[in-house]
Write a protein that binds this DNA or RNA. Sequence first.
DNA 1: GCCGTTTTCGGCCCGACTGTTTTCAGTCG
Length: 589
Amino acid sequence: MSNQDLAKLFRNVAAAYSIKDEKKFRFQIIAYQKAADTVSNLTSEIIDFYKDDKLNTLPGIGVTIKSHLEELFKTGKVSHFEWALKGIPEAVFPLLDIPSFGPKKAYRLVKEFHLNNPKTVIKDLEEIASRGKIAKLDGFGDKSQSDILRAIAEFRLGKGKKTRMTLPYAMEIADKITSYLKLSKDVIRAESLGSLRRRMPTVGDIDIAVATNNSKSVIEYFTGYPYKERIIEKGDTTSSLLVSGGKQVDLMTQPPEAFGALLQHFTGSKNHNIHLRELSLKKGLSLSERGIKNLSKKGLPIQNYDSEEGFYEAIGLQWIPPEIREDTGEIELASQKKLPELIKLSDIKGDLHIHSNFPIEPSHDLGQNTIDEMIQKAKSLKYDYLGFSEHNPSISKHTSNQIYSLLKRRTLKIEQIMSDNKDVRILKLLEIDILPSGNLAIDDKSLNLLDGAIVSIHSTFNMNKADMTERVLKGLSHKKAKILAHPTGRMLNERKGYELDWSKIFEYCKKYNKALEINSWPGRLDLPDMIIRMAVNTKVKMVINTDSHAVLEMDNMKYGIAMARRGWATRDDILNTLSYNEFYKWLKK
DNA sequence: GCCGTTTTCGGCCCGACTGTTTTCAGTCG
């Protein structure tokens, strides 16, 4: 059973509990939802945690759920889940994927209309609604009937939150809307928050906070946004739009003197906020987006905070960088004022993964700009060094002698440029395929032309975890191989990537001075943040590269930095914060 | 059902919006 299947099963159990007795099972419902979130965010398969007896290390998985999982992996089923799901028609569950459908509404409709086929339930319900039968039910009306029809139509088109945006795309939409908002005289500040501010690799919806003394006017202005498809909701202080492209934008407002609490609330994450609020309750404080209520002093007005720093300070915490607000230990450290100083963009001294258009007839895509153009860009970024690492020349189209002469030409070109240019030091690298056998794609004679090699997987992704780990370790075993590029091979929204045995990879990297790449390409963002965090904890060194195929892409470094920060990396964890001499020394180690 | 720098028992975040209702249930973030 895949992680996503298991997460779905947990959510179904939670939904079944909601339908049967929401009050009685209130905390079980929360527990199963949390377990579902945990499982769906794992970076390796849940069954591996079971095999290694590590299930109890996962947040939200305690004694009971652990024993259910053990039963699942031993027998293929869980008698408790069968009991919990008993009496709930299977057709309820597909409806839960549609926005605005919760367990109660889905169950009610399935029961009323005897919808028993989970494969056709959405279409069946649509037919019933279009024949006007839902409006006649108690508690429903014409509006809810037409809302259901629209919800189904939008769900089919993949609108709303179903498909997640890459970071740059989300930033572009957010910038457009905040710029629009700032044109209103009532908007004092407008900021994009939520998962975008936390720099999640993908973003589901855009969250925007506005400071204003006239919420009503701002909401009017917001809902008049010219590029909207429709208004989802419109209240006194908050509103939501569906904008063109089918993405949802949520707006919240507060007066400027209370804006700090809103920033904090709307940045999240949900788990971070829940933990913060539970912690504060124990101190007699109740937190919300409006401010802080002192529960022991009844009648006292809510305390306002204009800044987020002030809000965190009021509950005895150090300000926490948004990227790590995921409730994975940051609150505990902030209360001791011991948060690490996360890496910043200005710490970066060089980029090692650059594809120029120098014609070495590579196995994969060539860059679009010349070596000189890339160096000029590096200069503007104030880098001390730049590593050229085009893909190796194609091995199916060239003999090893031809590969050598292609690389030799590139070497001469780089050396000529180096003699003319003293501002940016240049490293002669190459991105080399690790073949399915684990061998590198080019031979030692060619490899000896290089200062070092970046190695990576570009074919035969479907190997199992043990074999892929062997393959990667064999690839890294060459003396010149120093960096493993885009280590999981994932492509966001496209492919999951292959599995590796991280403890083996980490151990090897430490022992033989190899580094893992954090690839800043927005469609990759690979390593994933959780694996960066593991690498940081085990003191494995990393580099942050852009993998640029064009000058403009060299600005993508900020996305890799964001991932490194999400993984709690400091300057010391990242090798391309080193000076040229120190980095070169590491390369030759 | 989970969890622990007040607790191994007894807690468990907080608020907004909508539709169908005359005070609330359901959904969402």
